[in-house]
Every structure is written in C-alpha cells, then in structure tokens.
Design a protein around this nucleic acid. Structure first.
Lengths: 177, 177
DNA sequence: ATCAGCATGTAAGGCGTTACATGATTCA
DNA sequence: TGAATCATGTAACGCCTTACATGCTGAT
C-alpha cells in the first residue's frame, strides 16, 4: 500500500511553486495553510527524506558559510504525483471540535460553564477571523495572478465559516440565557 | 502527565446519562456526535478498560444467555473528572480539510479539476446537511428537556456552518469559471 | 555578549485506524 | 440456512506531537 501521509502533498504543492528548505516549508505551512492543515519539523524532515528516496524531490546543498542548508526541488515524478492526488476525488475532511463536544455534554454542569466555553471559542474565532480577512484583502488586489484565486478561495472559506461561527455563538449564548 | 485522550470524555459524557456497553457507546458516537468527533472499537474498548482501572467507571456483567455483555456505569470520580474537563477553558478545535488543501494547490492542474473537487465536497455537505436538519427539527420540538438545548445547539452549529459551506461552494465555482 | 531567528534532525510516546479473530442471536 | 446485528476484544501499523539535541548568524 502506498503511503497516505498528506504532509507529502503539502510539501509537493509548495515545491511546485518554488524551491524551499524544510525550515521554509514549515514557515509556509504556519501561514495561510495552518487554518486547514498543520505540520511540524518532526513531520516535515522525515517526509523530505522519504520523498527524496522515492525520487519525488531532489536535494541540493545550499549551505551559506557554516550554516547547513538543504534546498529541495520537485521532480517530474513529484509533479505527477501531485496532479494524481488533485485528480483523486476522495478527500478526507475532518472537523474535531472539543468545544462542541463540551457543549454537547453541557448538561453535566451549570449553563454558566457552557456559556464561558462558548465565549472562549468566540474570542479565538474573532482574532483568527481578522487574520483571515487581512489575507483576503491582500489577495483580492491581485487576482490576476492565477494562483491568487486559489489562495483567495481558501482564505474566503475561512472568513465565511468563521462568520457563521460567530453568528452561531450569539445565538447559542442567547439560548442558554 | 495525565492522559489527554479525549475519547475518555466522550465516554464519560455518554455514561453521565445512562449505563451503556462499549457497543452502545460506539452507536451513540456514530450518531449526532460523529459530526464533530469520531470513535472506533479499537479506541473505545481499551479506553473502557483503562478507565475502569482508574475508578472512573464500573463494569457489570449483563450477559444475556451466551452473549457476552458488559455494561458500564459512571462513578463519582468519573463525574468529577467530566466536570473538571468541562470547566477547563482549553479546547482543541481542529479542522483538517483535504478539499481545501487541494484547492490551495489547485494551480498545479486545470481549473476543471478544482471545480470537480468542489462539487464532490458540495454533494457530501448537502447530504450531511439534510441529516443535521432532521436532528434539529426533532430536537426543536422538545427543548423543555434541558439536555436537548445542548444537543440542539451542536446540531445547529452543523447546520449553520454547512449552509455557509454551500454558499461558499457556489461562489467558488463561479469564480473559477 | 546575548538573544532571536535560521537550520537540521532524532526519539519517545500517544493516539487512532484498520483488520483480524471469535462467537451468539434474530429474522427472513 | 444465511445474513445482519449484537458484542468483545487484540495486534499491527502509521502518523503526529513534543521534547530534545546541536550549531551558526545577525542584530542590539
């Protein structure tokens, strides 16, 4: 069975635009992607090693002075695998919200506890929404760049769902009071 | 460090309402909870064993005839742990949407591929939305039951976010065309 | 001088999924 | 009789997170 590790596809996707180091890849993932996918060094470096062995990417030493630096470049095989993944209709979309779990079992404690949990959730969403909106505004100005349309759409997914979350938060707090 | 396994809290939450077998717990999780949390037998049975050892639940043999059956009951310690968890403000809310990942890297293939991926996503959401709406309708009729308010709110979270998803799908398809 | 940031990696541990393994009962 | 459902569990495997370990460079 082929590997299912999705971090490979994130890496391939990033490398399809530019050559990057593992460290750079981490920074990219921590940006706009982090709203729907995460990555860590303990995740990225082993993936890079495996993918090079498989011929999906090639490594080149770009060390500057005494600072070690390995830059990766995508191969034709890598690009083909990326496209095959994009063309595969199957996609796992999973949401794991502990806040909803707590709310579902809210009856086990006072309603104040549930209201507070909703408020904590609401605050987090509000601040993330600001970040997402700023991504959208930047991207909107340059939608002629074909890639920006894709980036814009993922950011706007975030904006629209987070706005729905906030609407729900108000309603939920009202219902509990 | 204490265990972080959230399945424990799902089990405790369910047992705080009624005594259940591992099999029953799985069925409950596969219901309304499955929209924001998942569980499997390979997950549930070991958790049950550990939690009994820890005195959070107690097991009793309720076998009928030759069919093995173990029913679990929550203890005071279990209820206290459940409340402590509810009162803890920290909550991990994570969304991992492969569809968004694919869309983000959509520029690596034709826009038709991205449109098709959005359509597949849309179909899945539409059918799940129907299920969520039916949960809401049932619960709305009996909001006097205090627990139903909590169940209703989690289901309505699903309805509202899924409706936002669908709105976004239309917009995204239009933008790509 | 020191601290933040650049840069690479490994190791342990935890959690979860999937498949396997077994067997009883109920209903068509 | 055979299939679906009830019912319990284990084992292998994979993936990810966290912490650890190391060292250079540039700015203050």
């Amino acid at each position: 069975m082929a590997r299912e590790r999705k971090i490979d596809m994130v890496i391939l996707g990033l490398l399809s635009h530019e050559d990057l180091t593992g460290y750079d890849i981490k920074k990219r993932i921590d940006g706009a992607i982090s709203f729907f996918w995460k990555g860590s060094f303990g995740n990225i470096y082993p993936a890079l090693k495996d993918m090079e062995k498989d011929g999906l990417i090639i490594k080149s030493d770009t060390s500057v002075g005494g600072r070690e630096k390995l830059t990766y470049h995508i191969t034709i095989e890598g690009k083909n695998l990326l496209k095959a993944w994009l063309q595969n209709k199957q996609a796992s979309n999973e949401l794991k919200y502990e806040t909803l779990l707590k709310l579902f079992f809210g009856g086990a404690d006072s309603k104040e506890v549930s209201i507070r949990n909703i408020e904590v959730f609401e605050e987090g969403i509000k601040s993330d929404l600001e970040i997402l909106k700023s991504y959208c505004m930047v991207l909107e100005k340059d939608l002629d760049n074909p890639d920006h349309v894709y980036y814009y759409l993922t950011a706007s997914f975030g904006v629209e769902t987070y706005e729905a979350y906030l609407k729900w938060c108000s309603k939920a707090k009202k219902m509990l009071n």
